[in-house]
Amino acid sequence: MQSRTGKKIAGTSLVIIILAELLPVAGMIPPWAGFILLVLSVPWFLLGLMLWWRAPGGESDLPFIGY
């Protein structure tokens, strides 16, 4: 997976997180709906962020089989 994909995922989910924080304050969605949005977006944000800043490179390989 490209780190650019991670950047896109992190950016999109950050927008959703900000919306999930602001919309309940503005009274447009109930607080629990905001929390559901967070449940859906925070995991993507965390993984996207980490995929973005991780060290580049590495080729996929067989699983670890033994010492």
């Binding site: 997976m1 991780r54 996929s60």
Partner: peptide, 12 residues
């Protein structure tokens, strides 16, 4: 861990 090289195993 989040800074490390990461991939998905071939068999996964």
């Amino acid at each position: 861990f989040s800074f490390k090289q990461t991939w998905i195993p071939d068999t996964a």
